[in-house]
Amino acid sequence: MANAVPRTLDEWEKPLRDLEDGITKLKAVAVKEKDDSRAADLKYRIQELQRRHDNYLEVMYSQLGPWEKVLVARAPNRPYMLDYVNQVFEGFVELQGDRRYGQDHAIIGGPAKLNGSPVMVVGHQKGRTIQERQLRNFGYARPEGYRKAIRLFELAQRFSMPVVTLVDTPGADAGLEAESRGISEAIAASMLKMFSLTVPIISVIIGEGGSGGAIGIAIANRVLMFEHSIYSVIAPEGCAAILWRKPEMGPQAAEALKVTAESVLSFQLIDQIIPEPTGGAHRDPASAAQSLKVSLLSNLAELSSLSGPELLNDRANRFRNLGVMAIH
């Protein structure tokens, strides 16, 4: 390719935005146009640009490579956890605090209703504005976030509520404070707790499934991924930095790490891909939310026939068989 590899979704979608700008300008002209035949001509040109735009969008999004998926998964206008919570669930009450040390806003959660039945929703929340990004620590959860999650999982168990987790993090916080308060232990303990529950658990990777920070709340009977989300053992840039000493080789690492939902499904590490609207979830959040709801309901319905002990065993068995080995 002649063009440099795009580093953000914005760069990558530039041709689309150019078309959109063209359409906006023509529309502005068309509104003022008095002459009927010239107005008809403008109308035609707008329709033609719109057709090219839609066509381009469909083609672009049907051929997303691993790196483009990384860009889409990280897009700042992609729906975040609370966007889904507001559209998929009713009456969400956020419960806060780990009752141990402090407050974390990167992992949030609480009870809500899904089609009238109570469930416990826990997930990563990123921020959009500068202030909100800082509040959410850019989606990097601290130990307190995982310990709050553990508390909410215990509540779900006590009150027999299915658990839904929505995963969207670049990774867990690796700073001095997080290390001091045992970020590793917090992640491990959260996984351990999820394995001990006798209620159904469904985890959905909605954006970035970043390494330990992601799997810390992704122990479930069913693990689903949105079509353009990613799930990876390490951030592609981090992998490139370690293996090749070149963080700028993220696109190559994304390819090698097989981070796309399609790849992950082919290794049977997830159970289902939730389709996204043409052009990605960020172009039609309501439709993405609807797909999520349908998927959650059908999976919960399937799990409803299992007893508590069966759910626990099903979850252990699901993860027990993951891995690819040979015999010497």
Partner: peptide
């Protein structure tokens, strides 16, 4: 830590091993 060259399969080993520890606990 996890072996990058096996990608997400390596991440899943975190879950698999923790599940075994959980069964030992019980």
């Amino acid at each position: 830590g996890a072996r990058m060259q096996e990608g997400l399969l390596s991440l899943m080993q975190m879950a698999k091993t923790t599940s075994a520890a959980e069964r030992c606990n019980r």
